[in-house]
Design a protein around this nucleic acid. Structure first.
Lengths: 226, 226
DNA sequence: GTCTATAAAATGATAGAC
DNA sequence: GTCTATCATTTTATAGAC
């Protein structure tokens, strides 16, 4: 069975060009989104193992059959959830965030902000990791995991420099973004597992020092070539 | 339902002191282990979502009823799988590894060795992360995730110094171990998601530089106090 | 587009023969 | 201790009324 082809048969990818492809009405789009959000909520609440279509439908305030009217299968729904997460990332990407002017200080502020966010959204973070692993496991959906990570890297990367019109700076921004994401992913898992706030706080400080140093090195290398 | 109490009712925790508590015979222990290993294999092969008791039994070369003779529930079996992983870690902990004498070089060698291992055990790594998340989700099993992480930290930490009889050095070893584990966990996720070997290799080099710097800083701080 | 009702398959778990 | 056979639910998914 070709899962990629199947995914293209549910309401999610209905082509708007051919008249009115069931699911494209105002209300239809709303319901579809309600279901996606319901799935996210159910996932955050109970984890992957407890994530059944019934629970999702209930969480979305919709009957089971309605869920299947919008999504051919549980799998295509989960894919849609990941896509929704990506779209949200895209929105955040475009939002202005108040950050210090100096790149090194911006990196530090970014890490501190992320850390605060991570601490108060435990289930959301676990859910997101579960979804990423699901995508890595699901043949034909590995690209989604890649796109998700690239979105995060761009998100961090483009916040490092105020003006990222310089190609070389963008490259450096992405390198730092990759490294920051590595550190933050690692800290997410470890902080939830160990539940030792003192230790995690120390790790955050160490990450900040390391990231400042990394950025400084990359910029120094660049200056040498100018 | 008290899951911690339930877990104590299956063959895994049968008290050896009261005669012959079903499951403690030579063959029984072997079968129990076969089932656990079968579960690990099935998990690595198909992921958490496809992990059913039937699949586990098949993978272990055992009938479904036999699985339930040894484990009261799927949950208690999964817990046992995590415990098996921990025991394995304990074994690795005690094994001698050939490493350079200087601590900074040891850290570098450790990261390179881990990186090679991670690259050739993709499914194993994903499975382990899935299990950790499962433990974090399962009420009463969070401690297992904590113990797993502490085992890893000790593993890395005690390899940083050849002689870790000094309390202060052990503390530094653990700090570096925590940080290395953070970096390695992050790199696992990112490398599998992005599938960009060139980028991941660069990230590994950056991690090495960062870890060497971190260790150097911790040791310099310590020297100041002497 | 959403619902009620139900089919069809899968799943965790048990009873009881050997 | 391991098996065959089976139960009781649960789960994904569909048919068809409204």
């Amino acid at each position: 069975m070709n899962k990629a082809a199947d995914a293209a048969t549910d309401r999610s990818s209905a082509d708007a060009s051919r008249g009115r492809p069931a699911g494209a009405t105002r209300k239809g789009v709303e319901t579809r989104l309600r279901i996606i959000r319901g799935a996210r909520e159910a996932l955050e609440e109970g984890g992957m193992e407890a994530l059944t279509t019934r629970r999702i439908a209930a969480s979305a305030g919709v009957k089971l059959a309605t869920l299947h009217y919008y999504f051919d299968s549980k799998e295509s729904l989960l894919i849609a959830v990941l896509e929704d997460l990506l779209a949200e990332m895209d929105t955040a990407y475009r939002q202005e965030v108040a950050l210090p002017p100096a790149p090194e200080d911006r990196v530090e502020a970014l890490i501190r902000t992320s850390w605060r966010y991570i601490q108060r959204t435990r289930n959301k973070q676990i859910a997101q990791t579960e979804l990423t692993l699901y995508a890595l496991r699901t043949k034909g959906s590995e690209w989604l995991a890649a796109r998700q990570y690239n979105a995060y890297i761009d998100f961090y990367g483009h916040l490092v420099f105020e003006d990222d019109s310089d190609d070389e700076l963008r490259r450096i921004g992405r390198a730092v973004g990759r490294q920051m994401l590595i550190g933050i992913d690692g800290i997410i898992l470890q902080s939830y597992a160990l539940q030792d706030l003192t230790a995690s706080n120390a790790d955050i400080e160490a990450l900040i020092v390391a990231m400042r140093g990394y950025l400084r090195r990359l910029l120094a290398e660049r200056d040498k070539h100018l």
